[in-house]
Design a binder for these strands. Structure first.
Lengths: 276, 276
DNA sequence: TTGCTCCTCACGTCACGTGAGGTGGC
DNA sequence: TTGCTCCTCACGTCACGTGAGGTGGC
């Protein structure tokens, strides 16, 4: 007796996947019918394809991308567990990101911390250890998490860090959704042959809170500079006074945003609240 | 003195929206530049467009669809609050859905409740109040929540309900992602002129747990029927023994799934555990 | 034979991203 | 004048959904 096979319609009834979805899964190789009639093109599914189909439905239901679903189906049990666990971890991160985004939105709506104090500061050339790389906007957090420990370790071997770490973001970085970034850690003393982050005159604002909110400070700062017409196209400098390594609550983070000015622009205000 | 205007690149630096994103928002009318040079096509943004841009970034960050974002920007303060609150509510529902999907996945993986007991039952014609409508799969939960209270109220006026409510899902319903559904509530006594849900022989399985897991029971039932070759293309019947109105934990739900058989098919098993 | 199921294109959706190829402004 | 910024198509991505137009099986 032949093992019974199912048409797409019947298979769809068992699995609650639409026919169009089954066509799609056939096309991309996620659920290939046990049999395809070479003349009519009719798809035939075997009963033992029902179980994988239920799994596919659930994996897609938790947002796993189709290529990963295919990988899960092809994997043995141990690897299957690992792939699924990894995706659930991605889900948790995504959830945390969304929660943070809701907080950001509410912060904006309630108008908390709207006052941004802008000071003018001349920053000298800074001997540093630094790293420059092409980084996409989406990868910047992971890149920083990997890079700064390395830089601090290197600085330690050269006499220790001489101040908070920072980074340089060229003008087009945000416009392009990524690009060349420079991360640096200043050295405690002058060091012959060390890299140097060039000084400049800056309009500086202190950003309190999560990085996702940085655009608020950028906006206030950039709008002020635009209104005065004294900006340049040099990179923006960020200085990380209190970092995710120092506090667990993102609300505790402190970052200085430094917008480059022409040397002939506004005068150094001397009194800089964040640099007493 | 002219109010300073910003090029896309500059505006992008202030708002952290990419140039491509700003082009897109221009095209779809979310953020229209204050000025567009008629000859070069150059976009110019005003400083007071920075604030709406920050809002757009946050609304998109919490997943609000672009048309809704446009509506928020166009709305006055009260309506704006309402639209945002409504979306955050959508987000919460989506979150609950995902959490349930994770549970479903884990249930499948641990293999809990895999044993499905199948019985054969002859169901007689049933006098009912019923509602038939075209419903998409995504809308089915909301439709049921709206329809059953109405049906129970109607049954009450006709002498009360004579058993648990149910529904008929035609064969192609799942294949097509929706279609004509019939929801019914049986009447306590015979009632001249009342609608009748026609009886049939069914293979019946009791589904314990959330509706999102129903495919598991459909699969077991449909596979069994396919293996015996005694199925028909009549609608599947669901019977809601314990409904979301009865319990808060979806794990407590009890639903009978009835797969139609030919009258000459397998015999009524007589002893039906869920119908003592 | 009727009507349902099945088939294959081909295009639409959503919110942008990715080049290609060309021009404007300092 | 060079090089950067800006522009407009046109097409790609992702996971299907939506018809159109036609054929197979009971």
């Amino acid at each position: 007796m032949d093992a019974p096979q199912l048409t797409v319609g019947e298979f769809s009834r068992l699995t609650h996947l639409t026919v169009k979805t089954l066509h799609h899964y056939h096309e991309v190789g996620v659920l290939t019918p046990a049999d395809v009639d070479p003349v009519t093109g009719y798809r035939r599914y075997a009963l033992d394809q029902v179980e994988p189909a239920l799994l596919v439905r659930r994996l897609r239901g938790v947002g796993m991308p189709v290529p990963q679903v295919r990988a899960v189906l092809a994997a043995d049990d141990a690897r299957r567990q690992a792939l699924i666990a990894a995706h659930l971890d991605d889900l948790r991160h995504e959830l945390a990101r969304t929660a943070a985004a809701v907080t950001d939105l509410q912060t904006l709506l309630t108008g908390d911390a709207r006052t941004v104090v802008i000071t003018i500061r001349d920053v000298p050339d800074l001997p540093c250890v630094l790293a420059t790389e092409d980084v996409a906007r989406d990868d910047i957090t992971a890149w920083c998490a990997a890079t700064y420990p390395r830089l601090f370790a290197a600085a330690g071997r050269l006499g220790g860090a001489g101040g908070p770490a920072g980074a340089l973001y060229p003008g087009p970085w945000f416009a392009d959704g990524g690009g060349r970034v420079t991360a640096f850690v200043p050295l405690a003393g002058p060091r012959p042959g060390a890299d140097v982050v060039p000084g400049s005159r800056y309009a500086v604002a202190l950003h309190a809170g999560p990085f996702t909110d940085l655009d608020r400070t950028y906006a206030a700062l950039g709008a002020d500079v635009a209104a005065h017409g004294t900006g340049t196209d040099d990179p923006v400098r960020e200085i990380y006074l209190i970092t995710p390594g120092d506090v667990t609550d993102p609300a505790g983070l402190r970052t200085e945003v430094c917008w480059p000015l022409t040397p002939q622009g506004r005068q150094d205000t001397g009194k800089d609240p964040s640099c007493p």
